[in-house]
């Protein structure tokens, strides 16, 4: 359950979510060079559509999130990409809600950025091996989902729900999602690194492929 609906979390959580979202988006947009806007839009569209791929697990129903992949490719730019995708999911699909949008963006975009930064570190260490890089990307893809589920459980916990049962339930039901996303992210990044290495290049990061190009 990645999208918290309106009316579940308490006001302080809403306020923190909105503040983190505004700050994250402002910082990301400041850093985002215009020539990477189309790329952010593509990942936003992928994120937007990924939520429709879902399957029943136990008493609940889960869907792909793909925030790990978004973060690995976009880094900080995942913030505005996820904001727009979540806004459209709330308005068009009824997933989550408009009031709670800030909390949902925080719960998905912060893990995305963490995964992106972690992938940068891992990628520098993998040298020139696309296979190791894909493995690192897969790890980040799974980690993104795990962090998001923990963030959702924490949001519910701070809002007065019991934290442990919620966390257990959400994390357990999302284990299949983690596996699927890890494989998907590894495959996608592996393909991108072989076909178009510049696609995941970020300013401030000058790994092997940029020097080669």
């Amino acid at each position: 359950m990645a999208h918290i609906p309106d009316g579940v979390v308490s006001f302080p959580v809403l306020a923190v979510g909105a503040a983190v979202t505004v700050a994250g988006c402002a910082y990301a947009l400041k850093r985002l060079p215009p020539e990477r806007i189309p790329q952010a839009a593509i990942l936003s569209a992928v994120f937007f559509v990924a939520s429709l791929v879902h399957f029943p697990v136990g008493p609940s129903s889960v869907h792909l999130i793909l925030n790990g992949l978004t973060g690995v490719i976009l880094g900080w730019a995942a913030f505005p990409a996820i904001l727009i995708a979540l806004l459209l999911q709330a308005v068009l699909f009824g997933f989550g809600g408009v009031v709670v949008l800030g909390v949902n963006v925080m719960n998905m975009a912060v893990p995305a950025v963490i995964c992106g930064l972690l992938f940068d570190v891992l990628y520098r260490r993998t040298g020139d091996s696309p296979r190791l890089a894909a493995l690192a990307a897969g790890f980040c893809g799974g980690l993104g989902v795990l962090l998001t589920t923990l963030a959702v459980a924490l949001s519910l916990g701070v809002s007065g729900r019991e934290f442990l049962p919620a966390a257990k339930l959400i994390v357990l039901t999302h284990v299949p999602v983690m596996v699927v996303e890890a494989v998907f992210t590894a495959a996608a990044i592996g393909l991108v690194l072989r076909v178009k290495p510049g696609f995941i290049a970020r300013p401030g990061l000058s790994p092997a492929w940029e020097r080669v190009e």
């Binding site: 215009p34 806007i37 569209a45 429709l52």
Partner: peptide, 27 residues
């Protein structure tokens, strides 16, 4: 409650439009 294909396509269209606007302003 059904999500129609035109909802999905419309959403992607919005994203493309927002990206175009952002690109235009940035330029």
């Amino acid at each position: 409650e059904k999500i129609w294909l035109h909802d999905v396509i419309g959403g992607i269209g919005y994203i493309v439009g927002v990206a175009g606007l952002a690109f235009g302003f940035a330029n």
